[in-house]
Write a protein that binds this DNA or RNA. Structure first.
Lengths: 342, 342
DNA sequence: ATGAAAGCGCTAACAG
DNA sequence: CTGTTAGCGCTTTCAT
């Protein structure tokens, strides 16, 4: 059995409360007493029981981070940044994966809520109503979603969608398809709305196809439908779907980007490596991870919003459409061979 | 403030201990009383405090899973399988990433050990001595490492190394390089030992280069050294390194596999998608994840070992070496365009 | 079948 | 500066 505070007290000849103080309020105890206590604690291999401590203080020094899918390469940079920041602030980060399931998501929040000081909800799939209700149980910061009244870190998905659409219409595409993401996604709604409006404004038509699973499988499964729309350019909810779609279309005998231009969101590392490399709308997910922790841990409870801007990375998977202007140099942004590296 | 067991007791006109029983020992309480209690609990939105419960029962219903690097695509399938299994067994899985740092790793174990019923240590970087010492604080199962006296789930890395070397020597390579992984890795030591012995037995020479970071960066950073060894075939500690190396060599003007054959370990999804697709030694990481949970949770504490076999997946990144037999069809295993899909 | 009391390991008033 | 006391929310004897 592990040593308790009483074992240490006995070994150093003081009262348990003195041990407690020696450990967590060094200024309130005599230097030499403290030395004795620390020595005894060391000798016994004493580790304060965080569970017991949490029960009385109400603080666990833990933060929970909940993601829809840990296998999505978009998340690791965000998670690592959050983890580093948490460590610096003397907290520990628990990560949980919900498998894109809103029911699991809610269970996980419930379970975690009692064992953490706060939660980072990344790309949640629950309804706003559920999220707001859960917020009463535990402080939380929502990432990649706007929920009225809640602190959040969001990337400007609408702006990113406009960048993507502008790029495609600028290349001379007039028939676009948006390959939508999962039903519960706020980002998906934002993109749908902004892309539709922007395409229309540019005199182009945009067909929305979805919802789809935000994975390669989801992307490839939609290949035939995409062809059926007659679009010459596709923008996908995320890079994973764009890649899956690209593979399926290639298997169907299509050439990318000659027959069809394809763009995604997220700038995951694979997208830079595949051929053709993937044009994508990037956002600084590491900044998001760190900021989310800061927001959550700020003195008077989580509050405020942070909005991050996106960057369009033009690579090989998009090229001229049927209405390409003769003066290409002016309508097509400069190409960059590779995106940012972490 | 959240409702406590006393609020429920008061609301249903019984003693707190009865509420406790109604919830966790249904057989010990009158049906109608129980109905009243449950109704009151429901009405108040009561959630038993797992922390308080854990303090007295000593069981948290939590499992910790610690990985060296969550960004390594090798882990997600393992994690997801563990998570599913844990959920089925009514446990929650906490995931933590140690960034390949043995010091962080030990801190994380310490922190987690009090808040979980057991730990899954995946590819730990600590010394065996530290691991064994920590085992006294908390039940644990080690994955991808053999630690004397500890329960473990391992893939037969030595066997995999032999498969890889056999493949390469079978193709007619006589100068091999093993691009080693990180210092603390058991798998790395196993591969080094087995590959060296097997190469020698086949009349080939194998140079070991390392240690290296088990990432793409680690692989590409070693490109020039690899060339300096004069090897015609390379086997890397994992797919990530193999891919990084492949990129760097290509940038240096080398053709893969014509100038140099390259193989890895793990069969991560990217390896199937890049060109040339990556020859690799696969192991069933999802099986490992589930088995590790089962082992940890078995009634009388974790015990026993599970050893998983590897499969060689021959793809495009390896081909004939200088000593290739004239009768290629017999020495070269059948190619498979794509590996297993989850 | 239910209530009373004790206590998990710790911290936080309150005395002294 | 240190000891005493109470109690976080829950389970678990022990009575009744």
């Amino acid at each position: 059995m592990a040593a308790t505070i009483r074992d240490v007290a006995q070994a150093s000849g003081v009262h348990p409360s003195t041990v407690s103080r020696a450990l967590s309020a060094p200024g309130m105890v005599n230097e030499v007493t403290r030395g004795r206590v620390l020595a005894a604690a060391e000798a016994l291999g004493y580790r304060p029981n965080r569970t017991a401590r949490a029960l009385i203080t109400g603080r666990t020094q833990n933060i929970g981070l909940i993601v829809a899918d840990i296998a999505n390469p978009f998340f690791p940079p965000l998670i690592k940044a959050a983890e580093h920041r948490a460590r610096v602030l003397n907290h520990h980060l628990f990560i949980a994966d919900t498998d894109e399931d809103p029911v699991v998501e809610e269970e996980v929040v419930q379970t975690l809520s009692q064992q953490v000081d706060g939660l980072l909800l990344c790309s949640p799939r629950m309804s706003n109503a559920r999220i707001t209700a859960l917020r009463n149980h535990v402080p939380m910061v929502v990432v990649n979603r706007a929920v009225p009244g809640l602190a959040s870190v969001l990337t400007d998905a609408a702006g990113g969608a406009r960048q993507g659409v502008d790029h495609l219409t600028g290349l001379g595409h007039r028939e676009l398809t948006y390959l939508a993401g999962p039903r519960g996604s706020w980002t998906n709604r934002e993109i749908t709305r902004a892309a539709t409006a922007r395409a229309q404004a540019a005199g182009a038509r945009l067909t929305v196809l979805g919802p789809n699973a935000p994975s390669e499988e989801g992307g490839s499964a939609a290949a035939e439908q995409v062809l059926a729309t007659g679009a010459t350019a596709v923008i996908a909810y995320n890079d994973l779907m764009a890649i899956g779609l690209m593979e399926a279309l290639t298997a169907l005998g299509k050439e990318i980007p000659d027959d069809l231009s394809i763009a995604g969101f997220d700038d995951i590392a694979v997208g830079r490596r595949i051929r053709p490399s993937l044009t994508t709308v990037a956002s600084p997910s590491d900044v998001a991870g760190q900021a989310a922790v800061d927001l959550l841990l700020q003195a008077d409870g989580p509050d405020g919003r942070l909005r991050l801007e996106t960057t369009l990375l033009c690579r090989e998977s998009t090229s001229d459409g049927p209405f390409a202007s003769a003066r290409r140099g002016q309508t097509q942004p400069a190409r960059r061979a590779a995106g940012r590296r972490r």
